[in-house]
Design a protein around this nucleic acid. Sequence first.
DNA 1: CATTGGCACTCCGGCCTGCGGAGTGCCAGC
DNA 2: GCTGGCACTCCGCAGGCCGGAGTGCCAATG
Lengths: 350, 350
Amino acid sequence: MQEDRRLAVLRAIVEDYVHTEEPVGSKALVERHGLGVSPATVRNDMAVLEEEGYITQPHTSAGRVPTDKGYRLFVDRLTTVKPLSAAEKRAISSFLDGAVDLDDVVSRSVRLLSQLTRQVAVVQYPTLSSSTVRHVELVALTPERLLVVLILSTGRVEQRLVELTSPIGEEELAALRSRVLLAAVGQRIADAVTALRASVPEQPGEDGAPDRPADRPADPTGAVVEALVEAMSDHRSDQRVAVGGAANLARYGDSFDSAVRPLLEALEEHVVLLKLLGEAGTGGLVTVRIGAEGPYEELSSTSAVSTGYGPEDQSLATLGIVGPTRMDYPGTMAAVRAVARYVTRILDEA
Amino acid sequence: MQEDRRLAVLRAIVEDYVHTEEPVGSKALVERHGLGVSPATVRNDMAVLEEEGYITQPHTSAGRVPTDKGYRLFVDRLTTVKPLSAAEKRAISSFLDGAVDLDDVVSRSVRLLSQLTRQVAVVQYPTLSSSTVRHVELVALTPERLLVVLILSTGRVEQRLVELTSPIGEEELAALRSRVLLAAVGQRIADAVTALRASVPEQPGEDGAPDRPADRPADPTGAVVEALVEAMSDHRSDQRVAVGGAANLARYGDSFDSAVRPLLEALEEHVVLLKLLGEAGTGGLVTVRIGAEGPYEELSSTSAVSTGYGPEDQSLATLGIVGPTRMDYPGTMAAVRAVARYVTRILDEA
DNA sequence: CATTGGCACTCCGGCCTGCGGAGTGCCAGC
DNA sequence: GCTGGCACTCCGCAGGCCGGAGTGCCAATG
């Protein structure tokens, strides 16, 4: 089947190009890969592949380079899952096993991922919306200042300061605390929000209707609940990400201005970064975004490989890497998936 | 005084070189700066300056470039404080005023600083050792699991989980809480640690001597105090820094491999970064480290401009920028100092 | 009809060469 | 001590040359 061989040629081109960084010619191809045909035949195949848009040549009489479309086909159909080496597996567990808290897990993951893939790694912190409430604590710093502490299943802690219009007593505080706990603990964030909201109007002091007057009621419930709800819907922190391995950008070699500069800028724009990684595939599914498939014009020569992590039924957040379109996709995909699995497991244990 | 003129020549060379990025020759010098002498005279001065090691020429018959020593002299003796423009001042306050918490202050500062100086900015989080204890809270998640929350004057929050060997009752917890509060609140970290340690042996249940047996006493005080002390001496988090403006590295132009790569690597090594910034000058004093004066061989072509921030008597932490030796020192120093002042003020208000 | 060897052609990249310009160092004169 | 003049150096750039790698096409072959 010549069709099969054409695909084999494409695969060979991608593999060679990825590791030589130079346009690959017909002769070198047949030598390195054991396709049992002559260079001339390969040339014919390459002509077809070029016509179909999978490869291109930088200039006449140069070797061929894969296009985005070529990489896409390669990733979709020509990739066999490359299992990690034993050393890599060992590296992963020894790297992640000592983590003590959420911050630690994230920062270790990002470092690990960047080292495994030799690319820039990105790990999003578990989003609020996907976690559950583990605990809520109300602390009276003074009789009129409450510290509201929200502890989530992921180990994340948010706190808010609430100024009361009138002092609160010990018993009152205890009652409020248990009410809030009852409503929120164990719930998903979204459910906790509605439960908390529902608990307000039943309280004395004010009728709690949404259109209450501008001056606040003396009852602290409303204020506390609002602080909690606010903390729970703080999507600003949903965009928290950790970035690592920026030094790998130095390996870009040529195409510096065109590729590295915009990426370097993107690295500090967490929102951009998350958009770049794209929708997280769940359950072992790895998302690959190649070059211009991404949402940003300036980043048309960078690819992103990402996946979701967290318990199977719900993805907590996204993690992945960003690099040049010319990258080792199979290896990178394997590494991303493996790290996501480990992180998931570790968060589960905690 | 020809000595004076020589210094003027040095200053002119530095200023020109900083903004043209090209070796500066005698003719261009007299034209751009109004020194009232001829190029030949300047050439003589330059010969002397070169002999003394303040400037050098990349190759024979090229213009002159300042050496590290030249920059040093420039910074020490030839710099007049350049006040910030009104626009810059406005930028600073509008940038920092909306900050809601410590993380926010730090991340805004780092962004601001990198934009003002167009360099890579580094802001260290307030160190534990320099803060005081604002509050401690003990929360019983279950009768045998305590969450110990430590709130510092800087707004920083640390929490630790303590597993007890035997359940603890409400009253017992309350007593323990007030004891701990009494010992720690308001104290500097170092003092709180000793006070807490002192409070242990007085408790019943065990004699609290340092050589107590391997099986833990039933009394929870020891465990709680230990968790607190551990949190207070967690120097790991003293090394937390925020980095911003890495995109400015893209402006390095030439000397890429030699300068950018090691710097890019350093950016992720927070310890390295802090060492690079050097000892923080306090009270408006800005520290400047030029090229090879720094501790790292590979970073011999980068400079650091830094200062401490925090209340006058005690510096909380360090903040500054890292960039090429060829930088606008006066402007950068002014920006660093200004940002440090603002950050200090904001942290003070909170 | 796919495959193959042969062949002429193209184009990049490295190398050398020549040249203009910017800058220097030195010297003699003021 | 400053200055103008002058010869010299050296970089950077443009142009021209050449070898090599690679291509496209074609005619021949199983």
